[in-house]
Design a protein around this nucleic acid. Structure first.
Lengths: 121, 121
DNA sequence: GAGACAAGTCTATTACGATAGACCCCATTT
DNA sequence: AAATGGGGTCTATCGTAATAGACTTGTCTC
């Protein structure tokens, strides 16, 4: 954990969202989508592909781009990073902020409880 | 919600942690602490005070600095921002990532359940 | 064999958050 | 009256993430 692979900057994150939603995807096609959704020029997309490829976040083989890290892994890293940065690693404070920030429905509450049960078995 | 007041950059956040932990605090004293804990020069601290003051994050009156936004408000904003940025606002995905990222003890699980009960009444 | 287009690199430039140096005013001390 | 220290501003500079322009190579087609 704490790997450089998982720490994504904002632009990198937006880009990876597209990759995760379309992989495996042809690089030229990816340029097209990034231009539509992010307004990026071709070279910007290729620069991003190269940087993330160097860091092992994705691979570009025979013009086909694939993620090497899972969305879920990055999400877990982001939770941990936030927990440390803004909550001094206090789990109760984190949960409290979550509960206050969200207006949860009965249904959501039921689901969350169930997930906790599952996780703690 | 979504206010500019709540979005803090990294350096701003570290700085506000110090303010929250010491307020109300004399500005010269604050410079001293920022130098010790962050290695900042005096002008860096005052620049930070001015910027955050302009945005309504804190106030500096008669050389006494006080936060105008609560730590809890910022924490809630951060949760929401992360939820949107990395989880496409999916609460189940967020909870799942949290449960996977943390190895919770029996005690913590009990506490979390209790907090959910409280919040949903 | 001249265009056209896919696939990509290499080297800037831009934007902006982070940080600080030089300077100012005023009160107190020596 | 000069030195010291508190309280502060104003205007850079620095670092680096974000973005792109110009160029290259190869293949296919007309």
């Amino acid at each position: 954990m704490g790997e450089e692979k998982y720490k994504l900057f904002d632009a990198e994150h937006k880009f990876m969202d597209i990759v995760w939603n379309h992989e495996p995807i042809n690089s030229t096609e990816l340029c097209k989508i990034c231009n539509e959704k992010l307004g990026w020029k071709k070279s910007t997309t290729y620069t991003m592909i190269r940087k993330l490829s160097d860091r092992g976040v994705l691979e570009n083989k025979d013009a086909t781009v694939r993620a090497l890290v899972k969305r879920e892994e990055v999400q877990q890293y982001e939770i941990e990073a936030l927990l440390e940065k803004a909550f001094d690693n206090s789990i109760p404070a984190f949960v409290a902020a979550f509960l206050d920030a969200q207006t949860l429905t009965e249904e959501e509450i039921r689901e969350i409880k169930k997930m906790i049960e599952e996780a703690s078995k």
